[in-house]
């Protein structure tokens, strides 16, 4: 048990340092919040434009799609709060050989690579997503019970795990490709698929992103849990859990394979 306690103690320090750092650059903190909000408003605007030309899409009404986008915002902002900055900085650690330092520490290196920096601005953005979820539920006239909220929380955590697995896997490609800035781009491309109702996707594309790289489910399952409390969500949650497990295990394997290849740099 002492290993877990050690990791928790280290994480407390990481958290402290990150918050101090964020608070000493207040203007930058506010600007990032504004930037993320603008992109989010853009997504809502897109829904507005789309529903100016149709009543519903594959059975989803306007406020159900807004709920979906709110859930997507919550999940991706939670992921960004905990992991995102770290994973974008990771390829640079490999390229410059600064990863050596982290490998020497008596904590798991994947842990310190992934959670060193905590992004305070994303806390606010997560709340914005939550407000949109609540607002669209009010518009739909749905009041989910405690069971629905519990399942929603589980689905959200699984969603964050899938985001993490996908991006960590992409980031680990930097052990083989020196210039891997493309990964940030790859992450956004993949997770953007979960903003739309899953039934719009068809054919091979649907199969791949539902089963092989299961990003489509990420926001869809939690949104359905809240929007349709009367349905059973066992199958959806099970698939989400399986997907999270595969994403985490898969990325861990690629990380270990990458470490075997890692020969440090310059030094």
């Amino acid at each position: 048990m002492s290993a877990l306690r050690r990791h928790l103690a280290v994480y407390r320090m990481f958290l402290r340092n990150s918050v101090i750092r964020d608070m000493s650059f207040k203007a930058n903190f506010l600007l990032w919040f504004l930037t993320d909000s603008l992109w989010f408003v853009g997504q809502l605007l897109f829904v507005e434009v789309m529903f100016a030309h149709t009543e519903s899409i594959v059975g989803w009404g306007k406020w159900e799609v807004v709920l979906l986008i709110g859930a997507h915002q919550m999940i991706s902002q939670l992921f960004q709060m905990l992991f995102y900055v770290n994973l974008t900085a990771f390829p640079e650690l490999v390229r410059t050989g600064r990863l050596d330092l982290l490998l020497l520490l008596p904590v798991d290196a994947q842990f310190s690579v992934s959670v060193q920096r905590f992004s305070l601005d994303c806390v606010v953005n997560t709340l914005v997503g939550a407000v949109i979820v609540a607002f669209s539920l009010a518009k739909l006239g749905i009041l989910p019970g405690p069971m629905s909220w519990a399942l929603f929380s589980v689905a959200t955590i699984l969603g964050v795990a899938i985001h993490y697995g996908v991006m960590f896997l992409l980031a680990c490609l930097c052990f083989w490709i020196v210039r891997a800035q493309g990964i940030v781009f790859g992450y956004y491309s993949l997770v953007s698929l979960s903003r739309y109702p899953e039934a719009v996707y068809r054919g091979v594309f649907r199969f791949v992103f539902l089963w092989v790289l299961p990003v489509i489910l990420v926001a869809n399952v939690p949104a359905r849990i809240l929007a349709h409390p009367e349905e059973s969500h066992v199958a959806g949650l099970a698939q989400l859990a399986l997907a999270a497990l595969i994403a985490l295990a898969g990325s861990r394997l690629v990380w270990l394979a990458g470490l075997r290849r890692y020969g440090s740099a310059s030094s």
Binding site: I57, V58, F185, S189, S192, Y196, V200
Partner: peptide, 20 residues
Amino acid sequence: FGLIPLAGSLYLWGAVFDAR
């Protein structure tokens, strides 16, 4: 990776025009 969101929005518009 740029082609993936494009494919996503093509499917989305496909659903919109189906609904119309």
